[in-house]
Design a binder for these strands. Structure first.
Lengths: 208, 208, 208, 208
DNA sequence: GATGAATGAGATTTCATTCAT
DNA sequence: AATGAATGAAATCTCATTCAT
């Protein structure tokens, strides 16, 4: 069996195992068994547990970013529609790849350097994309996004954070989880309302 | 030295170590050294690594819930003010106890059962509190929260998720993090705007 | 059992095993079994295979140097007698501690850095001692050792090299090995004759 | 490429690797890479690590013995001259083939059976040659070597041991090493003086 | 109440070796 | 003649856990 194929099998097995057991508790033994190969082969191809984990992170991060970017489809639609499509793409991808999402969001982020940095890079990329879309959407709505640059960035941060949180909830087993469509709609409402208030200068304040 | 004091020292050491190394990488040896006692004493008081970790989670979760509930000060003020105070309490507590927060949010959540369940319980408690406050606030504003029960819950979920995300950002080292007051204000703006739109039936929809 | 005692037991077992199997082929498992303890205890006390080997080298080197110095008994006798006694002490010690000698001469010297350096230091110490004794002996015999400083050093080098070689032969199993007394006598003859020729300027030359 | 040539390339690579890493630490992988062939080919030609090492020993031992024998040039000269030429040949060969010498003297000797035996055989061959030369030289000088047979053998042993020791010193990096000519001259002086004293019955004795 | 001494079990990693082509 | 693909076995090292005092 050619090397490239085997490597993907190993990454599949590793993502599954890391997601279910956690980085520390996942053993190379188990990963090899799940992949259906011997342990030395895993080391021959991927060198060490750390590099294997990094390879998982890289593959899953690239797949997630590609899924979101692919869903956005720039040009064809309004910025608001693009944001909506991006969110739906995000929830659809994380729902379809719960293990990959768990590796990125639960494991990699919490295992310290050097893994956290790789996640941070991916997150920055997405936040930047969201920031651009919100700014464009506010321009479409007739506002001047320059007026509230810092707050637009804050909105993007909160939106991404809330999306991450909802993705976990949406993937959780149990009856009352929202569908991925509902989750995206909730967030669009959130973003929309926030944008409107932001641009109209309607801020909540403690004195209110 | 009385047992209760020693036990708290051990929990302090354990929280610090778990937060910095992660559950898997933290060793009982190191915890004992940090606590300034011998390893058998840790076992005598806390039985096993798992129970020790559970004790940390329980202590930190209770402290966090108490801090938020204490900040809310029911009765004295409007529901919106209570929500504001609760958020400030949340951000203040996580900023003052970064290790405890890291154990709850980064470690316990990602180590699988039975720890994740303890976190879920605490989270439900807080989400319920937030849901009640949002409903009360909408009643104060003259709306009928029964009209949009499910969406109020969604709003609470998103708010808590965004708060968790902002707590991580606010505690992160680096110059552009928001202060805990800014973070709370950002979230109140979103909650407020979201509530208003919700109650006025102004939903964003794909067709828009 | 107190730590110091156990540590010596482990070093005994390690010296025996390293001598018989070689550094590479000796396993920590076998050393632990020979020492009658569990493997983790070996690591607890001696940290790693490398440090364990270093500890063996240090202990055996110090014992050997002490044996030679102790046998020399300076002051009481002529320098020639001292050299004789030192050689006898050397052969007696290596014969009584064949494993220790094998670790120093066969294993440590050939395992590269950092072990070879430790041996080199010990060897320098002994060569210096021998050089001093030869110089003193030549003074006693009425020569001026300053006249042939470099060659005296060469003689000391050759003497030590020959002694190392003979120690291996004397320890070897088989009937025709010399006793340790014979070995020492052979070397004294060697040294004596070399010294005499050296000081009388009688050099062998190819033309002869 | 013909098999014989490939085999020599592999042996070259193996000698180099064994000399630099030691028998245990040298891996078949590295040897194959250094030889510029694939690992299975090494096994096809040389069967196992042990046989490969044996082949190295055999080749290098034969080359060394041939170099010494070739340098001796029997018949043409006096026995003393032959000894002198043999020593020069020995030092020249070890200086020109430091890796081969390291394999013989440092690695093979210290890896236990069956390798040590192969070295012992070669060594016996050389000691026998030296013994014959010393006996012949003493006959040329008018002595009766039968009178001191055992001591002549001892002298040969010491001479060979000293030569091995000096070969290591002469090959060592560092400024104060002797040249191979100096080393040979030093040994001839000792052999000559030792022989003279031996035959004249001038023994050093403790009582002296 | 407290600890120095000790270990069973299992982690990651490496290596000599072979098969199918 | 030659190799990419693959592995059984064993190495070093760590850790949660327990006893005897």
């Amino acid at each position: 069996m050619p090397r490239a194929v085997r490597e993907q099998q190993m990454l599949d097995a590793a993502v599954e195992t890391f997601a279910q057991r956690g980085y520390g508790a996942a053993s190379m033994d188990e990963i090899a068994v799940v992949a259906g190969v011997s342990k030395p082969l895993v080391y021959l191809y991927l060198n060490s547990k750390e590099e294997l984990f990094s390879a998982c992170i890289r593959r899953e991060a690239e797949a997630l970013v590609a899924a979101v970017r692919g869903a956005v489809e720039p040009g064809a639609r309004s910025a608001a529609q693009q944001l909506w499509c991006g969110l739906r793409g995000f929830f659809a991808h994380t729902a379809a790849n719960p293990d990959g999402w768990a590796v990125l969001n639960n494991q990699a982020r919490t295992q310290g350097e050097p893994f956290a940095r790789e996640i941070a890079v991916m997150r920055e990329e997405i936040i930047e994309l969201v920031t651009r879309l919100i700014a464009a959407a506010s321009r479409e709505a007739g506002y001047d996004p320059e007026l509230a640059g810092r707050e637009v960035a804050g909105l993007a941060h909160a939106l991404v954070g809330a999306a991450e949180s909802l993705a976990g909830w949406a993937n959780a087993p149990g009856g009352d989880s929202p569908t991925s469509k509902e989750a995206a709609a909730t967030l669009m409402n959130f973003a929309w309302a926030g944008l409107e208030n932001l641009m109209n200068g309607r801020h909540w304040s403690p004195a209110l």
